[in-house]
Design a binder for these strands. Structure first.
Length: 556
RNA sequence: UGGGAUAUCGCCAAGCGGUAAGGCACCGGGUUUUGAUCUCGGCAUCCCCAGGUUCGAAUCCUGGUAUCCCAGCCA
């Protein structure tokens, strides 16, 4: 674990509520839950919720359940239940006991629905979806009662049973809670709590053809699991009335310290989509290579990109938890990963746009070994060997035939320091018919290894390099934001705001030490940025490095 | 006059009647064989607006304004 995890606990309005509940004795322990629907991969927005729920459980010595909110089989898939478990654990959290599923409670949920019918608080309605909408009224005009609202308990019991038995078609009827068609809360205008769906469920198979709705299920699931604080996002604020109504009317849930729902604002990140549906579109339309494409804001994508679990946790800590709408700058995320990697990532040299240098006064067959620190500020990380010879590669961007004094790299006729090695001076260069520089001819000063020129010459620039004969070829995947608009979700069409340069692939070279770079191992390629070996495509034969984040660059 | 929420620095965010924390970003100085790191310093006389209460208000009251959410048999 990074040391960032050991710092002071976060403080936010939810923790304040918990502190109070503990002080007043309303609760003696806290029990939260993270309740994703298995209809897509988890993204960084879920990370915020995960860190909140599991973080609270951790800090208060409580428990946090992982519960799949699987009440809509048509949209869900077993693959997602697997990926979600993996992502939660990769983030560094472990749920309490067995994994929970809302579908575990289908039998109980059914009984509770019957209880409501028996209390004359639910009825089977045969209005179709269009009629239901018309009867519901609008934001400003109250709805009107369904003609089926006053059916007898006996009839409703029979009808609901027939629904369960599959005697009605999908959409033909639904079970509704009898609340108030004139309520200012739209969700209280006799909400549907059970609908007919002849769908195969990934957990319950074909046992059911009626499935409970979210509002009916969630509160009961929380109550069954003895959740104390049910945390969700702001758009469920109105739904809280229904959450409470359902539990208020069921005999099993009358304890005054029963579960309560609290809402916080969801994460919005500049330039990124945060809806599973829209992310799914990107996958389906091959805009990206999959849910774990390194440009995706999914946990799997961030991981593949080189983000560490600790950096994501730190990010979630820094953004805080409030009820205010927000739009977090990407700079915040960048800062978190840079902070960690600056301290922990081994340094290495990689040339992304190679151009050859021939050091004419260096002995022809000679290859010498130079020992370089793995980390410039942390000696304990040791040293690594670097080959050096007459022929090396430097980046094409690090050489110019002419330049002003602000350019601190190699200039024709001038000197520059090769990182960890000698001072060289360029004499001339070859170009191809298009004018591209193909070879740069230099001389080196053999007394400058590990020290400055004895005559007091000042060499201002330092550039990185890789020895030619030992260099390993490598593919560099240079990622940029997927969208050109800060808020792609607000765009009319996603295609309009797609960044055509979100992925640029370069073929270059890396120092030989990286030949066995392990998947997801991150390095700092000096003067370039942090890169990690791709967890799917990189191998000794074909090295592939993903740009996690470039180095901070304050140079105009 | 549908209802529910939210308004503190460019972006986040503490603050809970006693005189504006912190982070990110940004701007300067220093160190540096990464234009990185590190380091030193700067960065809200003011808290959406207008009144009011108070010795004292970002915090309390009144009235405005702005923004977000709700009319799926989605979650």
């Amino acid at each position: 674990m990074s040391q960032v995890d050991t710092e002071v606990r976060p403080s936010n309005f939810i923790r304040n509520i918990i502190d109070e509940d503990l002080e007043t004795g309303k609760h003696t322990k806290v029990h939260t839950r993270f309740p994703p629907e298995p209809n897509g991969f988890l993204h960084i927005g879920h990370a915020k919720s995960i860190c909140l729920n599991f973080g609270i459980a951790q800090d208060y010595q409580g428990q946090c359940n992982l519960r799949f909110d699987d009440t809509n089989p048509e949209k869900e898939d077993i693959d997602y239940v697997h990926s979600i478990q993996e992502d939660v654990q990769w983030l560094g959290f472990q749920w309490a006991g067995e994994i929970c599923y809302s579908s575990n409670y289908f039998d109980k949920l059914h009984q509770y629905a019957v209880e409501l019918i028996n209390k004359n608080l639910a009825y089977v309605c045969f209005l179709n979806s269009e009629e239901t909408r018309e009867y519901r009224g609008t934001l400003k005009v109250p709805g009107k009662n369904s003609p089926y609202r006053d059916s007898s308990v006996v009839d409703n019991l029979a009808l609901f049973e027939r629904m369960r038995l599959g005697e009605f078609k999908e959409g033909e009827c639904a079970l509704r809670a009898k609340i108030d068609m004139a309520s200012p809360f739209m969700c209280m205008r006799d909400p549907i709590i059970y609908r007919v769906r002849f769908a195969h469920h990934h957990q319950t198979g074909d046992k059911w053809c009626i499935y409970p709705m979210y509002d009916f299920t969630h509160c009961i699931s929380d109550a069954i699991e003895n959740i104390t604080h049910s945390l969700c996002t702001l758009e469920f604020q109105d739904n809280r009335r229904l959450y409470d109504w359902v539990l208020d009317h069921l005999d099993d849930f009358q304890a005054d310290n029963r579960t309560r729902q609290y809402e916080f604002s969801r994460l919005n990140l500049e330039y990124t989509l945060m809806s599973k549906r829209k992310l799914n579109d990107l996958v389906v339309n091959n805009v990206v290579t999959g849910w774990d494409d390194a440009r995706m804001p999914t946990i799997a994508g961030l991981r593949r990109r080189g983000y560490t679990a600790a950096s994501i946790r730190e990010f979630c800590k820094r953004i805080g938890v409030t009820k205010q709408e927000n739009m977090i700058e990407v700079a915040m995320l960048d800062a978190c990963i840079r902070e960690e990697l600056n301290e922990h990532a081994p340094r290495a040299m990689a040339v992304i746009n190679p151009v050859k240098i021939i050091i004419e006064n260096y002995p022809e067959a000679k290859i010498e070994e130079i020992m370089a620190p793995v980390h410039p500020n942390i000696e304990e990380m040791g040293k690594r060997p670097l080959a050096f010879s007459r022929e090396i590669f430097i980046d094409a961007d690090d050489f110019r035939e002419e330049a002003n004094k602000k350019y601190k790299r190699l200039v024709q006729g001038k000197e520059v320091r090769l990182r960890n090695a000698y001072v060289i001076k360029s004499e001339r260069c070859d170009k191809d018919y298009e004018g591209n520089i193909t070879t740069i001819y230099c001389t080196y000063d053999d007394e400058t290894l590990g020290k400055n020129p004895s005559d007091g010459r000042k060499v201002k620039g330092v550039i990185h390099w890789v020895e030619a004969s030992t260099a390993k070829n490598a593919e560099f995947r240079l990622f940029d934001r997927l969208f050109t608009d800060v808020n792609p979700a607000a765009a009319d069409s996603i295609e309009d705001v797609l960044n055509p340069n979100s992925l640029v692939i370069k073929q270059g070279v890396v120092e030989a030490n990286l030949m066995h770079a392990k998947a997801e191992k991150t390095y700092q390629f000096e003067r370039e940025g942090y890169f990690c070996a791709d967890n799917k495509d990189s191998s000794c034969d074909h090295l592939v490095f993903n740009l996690t984040v470039p180095l901070r660059d304050t140079f105009a």
